[in-house]
Amino acid sequence: MPEGDTVWLAAQRMQTALAGAVLRRGEFRIPQLATVDLTGATVREVLPRGKHLLVRLGDGRTLRTHFRMDGSWHIYRPGTKWHGGPAYDIRMILSTDEWECVGYRLHDIELVETSEEDRLVGHLGPDVLGPDWDLDEALRRLRASPDEQVGVAILDQRNLAGIGNLYKVETLFLCGVHPWARVADVGNLEAVVTRARTLMLANRHHPEQSTTGIARRGQDHWVAGRKGRPCRRCGTAILLGEQGPPTQERVTWWCPSCQAATSPIDPQARTGEPGRPPPVTLYR
């Protein structure tokens, strides 16, 4: 599941492969940019911004891509067989003399002047894994909507950039916070944000995303993907619901005991059953 740490790692690897090199092949495989050829351009740097990956070129342009749920960049030595999926899933190819970077199922691909990057990522809040991370600003943005559900608020990239659904549910479990609690009712919002950042920092150097400290599949998460299974702390069955506005709902796992509501929330969210998403309130 691509989240901020996945994009961070991809950017580091592509920075190593491409930075300072001249593109021998710069091919788009999407209709809106099919006639654009980046061959001959020099890659200045590759960097992440939340869940967005930016490739800055020496000619003053920036390529932005987004992974969403299923995108990825794969890096190969020339002559190596590509294995990221069928050819029709390839959206971009950036090749140098030494490396071939192949983008599979990428989304939101745009090429703009570097001076106009804010048009693409200027709306984002502080980057959880960025060098300019600003905890106070992230908290200010979250608290600006005190009635929002905390599980929705920390996924809103306008508040803080990089946190995805996995780190949302795992962080809220570890902090004992009900996903449908209002932001205003979260006793220590700073601890929630800090815990999410700690988890992402711990996982950014490798593709595995463990929140338990155990990398083995099936033991790597506290609640994510564990509907109906016993909580690792108290044994209560993990619940599953959907949270978010229409067409943007995200599955949400939680332990009704370890994350018992301590303030009024949507009563239907509190009584969800494994396998049957409870009705929840939408954005206010």
Results as ranks from 00 to 15, higher is better:
residue 85 G to F: 05
residue 60 G to T: 12
residue 83 H to P: 00
residue 79 G to D: 03
residue 41 A to I: 08
residue 50 G to H: 04
residue 54 L to E: 08
residue 75 I to D: 02
residue 88 Y to L: 00
residue 86 P to E: 05
residue 54 L to M: 14
residue 57 L to Y: 13
residue 86 P to F: 00
residue 55 V to H: 02
residue 62 T to M: 00
residue 40 G to F: 10
residue 63 L to K: 06
residue 90 I to T: 04
residue 64 R to D: 01
residue 43 V to G: 07
residue 44 R to F: 05
residue 90 I to H: 06
residue 57 L to S: 12
residue 67 F to H: 06
residue 73 W to P: 05
residue 60 G to K: 06
residue 55 V to R: 02
residue 70 D to P: 01
residue 85 G to A: 02
residue 52 H to P: 04
residue 52 H to Q: 14
residue 49 R to M: 09
residue 40 G to R: 03
residue 42 T to P: 02
residue 74 H to V: 03
residue 52 H to A: 15
residue 59 D to E: 15
residue 52 H to L: 07
residue 43 V to C: 07
residue 46 V to M: 09
residue 74 H to Q: 11
residue 59 D to C: 14
residue 81 K to N: 02
residue 54 L to S: 04
residue 75 I to N: 00
residue 78 P to M: 06
residue 72 S to A: 15
residue 52 H to R: 15
residue 77 R to Q: 13
residue 66 H to Q: 12
residue 49 R to P: 04
residue 88 Y to C: 00
residue 69 M to A: 02
residue 88 Y to W: 04
residue 89 D to N: 13
residue 74 H to G: 00
residue 72 S to L: 03
residue 69 M to F: 04
residue 73 W to E: 04
residue 62 T to R: 01
residue 84 G to F: 07
residue 69 M to N: 02
residue 85 G to C: 03
residue 83 H to R: 13
residue 50 G to L: 13
residue 58 G to H: 10
residue 73 W to M: 05
residue 59 D to G: 11
residue 45 E to Q: 14
residue 50 G to Y: 04
residue 43 V to R: 08
residue 54 L to D: 03
residue 44 R to A: 12
residue 42 T to E: 14
residue 59 D to K: 12
residue 76 Y to E: 03
residue 66 H to P: 07
residue 89 D to F: 11
residue 65 T to A: 08
residue 73 W to F: 08
residue 44 R to M: 04
residue 65 T to M: 02
residue 87 A to R: 14
residue 77 R to A: 12
residue 87 A to Y: 01
residue 88 Y to T: 01
residue 56 R to N: 11
residue 83 H to A: 08
residue 81 K to Q: 13
residue 67 F to A: 02
residue 90 I to K: 07
residue 63 L to C: 06
residue 58 G to N: 11
residue 79 G to V: 05
residue 56 R to I: 12
residue 40 G to S: 02
residue 73 W to V: 03
residue 63 L to Y: 10
residue 74 H to N: 03
residue 82 W to G: 00
residue 75 I to Q: 06
residue 74 H to L: 13
residue 48 P to Q: 08
residue 80 T to K: 08
residue 87 A to D: 09
residue 79 G to I: 02
residue 70 D to L: 08
residue 44 R to S: 13
residue 70 D to F: 07
residue 82 W to K: 11
residue 71 G to A: 09
residue 68 R to H: 12
residue 64 R to K: 14
residue 56 R to Q: 15
residue 83 H to Q: 09
residue 67 F to E: 01
residue 54 L to N: 04
residue 55 V to G: 01
residue 70 D to K: 09
residue 90 I to M: 10
residue 80 T to A: 15
residue 75 I to G: 00
residue 70 D to S: 09
residue 71 G to N: 08
residue 46 V to C: 10
residue 80 T to S: 07
residue 56 R to C: 14
residue 87 A to P: 05
residue 73 W to I: 01
residue 42 T to G: 08
residue 70 D to M: 08
residue 70 D to T: 12
residue 48 P to M: 09
residue 48 P to A: 07
residue 62 T to S: 15
residue 75 I to M: 06
residue 51 K to E: 13
residue 76 Y to I: 02
residue 51 K to A: 05
residue 54 L to R: 12
residue 66 H to A: 04
residue 52 H to N: 15
residue 87 A to Q: 12
residue 83 H to T: 14
residue 42 T to R: 15
residue 83 H to L: 00
residue 76 Y to S: 07
residue 60 G to N: 06
residue 79 G to C: 04
